[in-house]
C-alpha cells in the first residue's frame, strides 16, 4: 500500500512537472494516431457511403467483411504488417519497419474497420428522403453527399472518437512494427507495457493516467455532441 502511494505520487509529479520524456512519448502517440485517423477517414467515408447507399451484388458480404476486420486482434495486424515490411518481405525495400510511418499504417488498418462500420450504420440511419430532397432542391452530387455527411455529423464524430480511442490505446501492432524506440516510436501504450519490465512503475502509471484522462475527455465530448443534437442551434 505504501509502495502504491509512493508510485502514484511520483506519477503525479511527472505529469504536473511536465517531464520532457513523458510528454515526448505522449506527443508521439498523438502525432501517430491523429495522422492515422485523418488519413483513414476519407476512404472509410466513401466505403461506408457505398455500403449504405449503393446496392451492388455482394454488398452483404462486404459488410460482414468489414465487421470481421473489426474483430481482428491488433497483434495479427502487427504480424501481417511486420511480414510485409520486413527486409525479407515484399515491401522490405521501403524500409518502413520500426518507423512512425509504419505505425501510422498499422493504425490506419485498425481504424478503418471501426470507422467504416460505425459510419455505415450512421449513414444508413439517415433518411432516404435527405438525398432526394437535396437533389430535388438543386444540390449537385457532391453537395448532396456533403449534406448526408452533415446530417450524420454526430455519428461521424462518434465514429472518429471511437476509432481514435481504439488506436491510441492499442499496443499489439505498435510494439511489433514500431519497436518502442525511444524518441522515435515509443508511444504511451508501448511505454506502459515495457516500462514495467524495468520495474519502473511511476512513468507507466503517469502515462496510464493520461490515457484515462483522454478516455474521459473523449466521452465527455461525445456526450456534449449528443446533447447538442437535441437542443436549439443557431447556425
Amino acid at each position: 500500500m505504501h509502495e502504491l502511494m509512493n508510485t502514484s505520487r511520483e506519477a503525479l509529479h511527472l505529469l504536473v512537472s511536465l517531464d520532457p520524456a513523458l510528454w515526448e512519448i505522449i506527443g508521439v502517440s498523438f502525432r501517430v494516431s491523429l495522422t492515422a485517423i485523418l488519413v483513414a477517414l476519407p476512404p472509410s467515408l466513401l466505403i461506408a457511403l457505398l455500403l449504405a447507399r449503393v446496392a451492388f451484388p455482394g454488398r452483404w458480404f462486404a459488410i460482414s467483411l468489414v465487421n470481421t476486420f473489426m474483430a481482428v486482434p491488433t497483434v495479427v495486424v502487427g504480424l501481417v504488417l511486420f511480414m510485409l515490411l520486413s527486409r525479407s518481405g515484399p515491401l522490405g525495400e521501403l524500409r518502413l519497419l520500426f518507423t512512425q510511418r509504419a505505425m501510422i499504417l498499422g493504425q490506419i488498418l485498425l481504424a478503418m474497420p471501426v470507422l467504416t462500420a460505425m459510419l455505415h450504420s450512421t449513414l444508413q440511419s439517415i433518411d432516404q428522403r435527405a438525398w432526394e430532397t437535396a437533389r430535388q432542391l438543386g444540390a449537385g452530387w457532391w453537395q448532396s453527399l456533403w449534406v448526408l455527411i452533415r446530417e450524420a455529423r454526430f455519428g461521424v464524430i462518434a465514429a472518429v472518437l471511437a476509432a481514435f480511442g481504439r488506436i491510441i490505446a492499442e499496443v499489439g501492432s505498435a510494439v511489433m512494427i514500431g519497436g518502442n524506440i525511444e524518441h522515435f516510436t515509443r508511444t504511451i501504450t508501448t511505454a506502459i507495457a515495457l516500462e514495467t519490465l524495468k520495474g519502473e512503475f511511476a512513468q507507466g502509471l503517469a502515462l496510464g493516467l493520461v490515457l484515462l484522462l483522454l478516455a474521459l475527455v473523449l466521452n465527455v465530448l461525445l456526450g456534449v455532441m449528443r446533447g447538442r443534437g437535441h437542443q436549439t442551434v443557431s447556425v
Binding site: 433518411d127 430532397t133 432542391l137 446530417e151 455529423r153 443557431s234
Partner: peptide, 18 residues
C-alpha cells in the same frame, strides 16, 4: 429537372439545422 418540377414528401425532410 431540379428546381422546375419539385416533389415534396408527405413528411417533408428538413435538414438538421436552423
Amino acid at each position: 429537372c431540379p428546381g422546375r418540377v419539385l416533389y415534396l414528401h408527405q413528411q417533408p425532410y428538413l435538414f438538421d439545422t436552423s
